[in-house]
Structures are given as C-alpha cells and as structure tokens.
C-alpha cells in the first residue's frame, strides 16, 4: 500500500534537501519551521478541534478537512509552539508537500518519505520518528473518514 508515487511538490522538496550539505539541510528545515502558518481562526479559537500527535517529542496538534467526492482534496492544519522548531519544520514540509492533494494520492505516499530528506544523521533516527508519526496519523485519519 505504500509503494506509490511521491507527489510532485513533495518530490521537489526532497530534491531541495538532497541538493544541500547537511548543515544547510538543517537551515532549510528551520526555514520551513519559520514559515509554518498560524492556524485559521476557526481552529485557533477552538483548540479542542485539534488532535495531538503523541508520538512527537514536542506537542504537535493536527487536524484536516476532507473535500467532496470524487477527488476528496485534503487540507492539513498544524500547530506547534515556537520552542519546538524541529517539529514545526516537519509539519511545514508535510504542509507544503501534501496540502490540497486528493485523499487517494496522499494515502499512496510512501511511509519512508521522512528518511529521504537526508536529515536522519543530523537529527538522529529517534527524532525523525516524529515526522513518520505525523504522516502515519494523517493517513489514519483519512482512512477513518472513509
């Protein structure tokens, strides 16, 4: 189920990371962290509508809106505190790479995408697990909504 194609936007981000040296990759992740948008008001005022991804080292809250058939485009919303830049960076990568894609395409994203960013050595496998957990949670929520 996980051998699908990597969506174009996400593939581009992976290439961007791969083209850089390790310190610059961290810098790029930091840029994603800085650019993670605030939640829209309808969620910002209602934290109870968000779900915590407990596998992440720092608190990350996630929710999504799934559109109508046949495409069922998925919109993602993340929230993590400024004291958790790595978690925010992971969320930023997933948001830019996956937001708005049809549910089917999102479910086909390979589970090992986080490993392909080339950050595992600089960040350690333990920390990378947080990002894998985010992707896993997104897919599970889409399946549950079906």
């Amino acid at each position: 189920m996980t051998g699908g194609a990597i969506p174009a936007k996400l593939a581009e981000i992976i290439d961007d990371f791969q083209d850089l040296t390790e310190p610059d990759r961290l810098q790029l992740l930091l840029d994603f962290s800085r650019e993670l948008p605030d939640l829209p008001e309808r969620y910002g005022d209602h934290p109870e509508l968000l779900e915590q991804v407990v596998e992440c080292q720092s608190p990350l809250f996630l929710t999504m809106e799934i559109g109508d058939e046949p495409e069922r485009p998925v919109h993602l919303f993340f929230s993590a505190p400024p004291e958790a830049p790595t978690t925010r960076g992971f969320a930023g990568v997933l948001l830019e790479g996956l937001d708005g894609l049809p549910a089917e395409e999102l479910l086909a994203v390979p589970d090992d995408v986080p490993d392909r960013l080339g950050l595992t050595r600089a960040i350690t496998p333990l920390r990378m697990r947080g990002m894998a957990a985010m992707l896993g949670r997104i897919k599970r929520k889409i399946r549950e909504a079906q």
């Binding site: 961290l26 810098q27 992740l29 930091l30 962290s33 080292q57 720092s58 400024p82 004291e83 958790a84 830049p85 790595t86 978690t87 960076g89 050595r121 600089a122 960040i123 350690t124 333990l126 920390r127």
Partner: peptide, 22 residues
C-alpha cells in the same frame, strides 16, 4: 536543548551549541 534546532532560532549572545544526541 532537546530540540536540535532551538539554538538556531535564537540563543544567548556568544553561546555555542552542544547537541546531546549528535
């Protein structure tokens, strides 16, 4: 810090970073 990027978001002037993990 626990978070490997927190230092890069801002630190005490002149401070160096040591990452416990790496």
């Amino acid at each position: 810090d626990e978070d490997v990027l927190l230092y890069e978001t801002g630190h005490i002037p002149g401070a160096v970073k040591i990452d416990w993990h790496t």
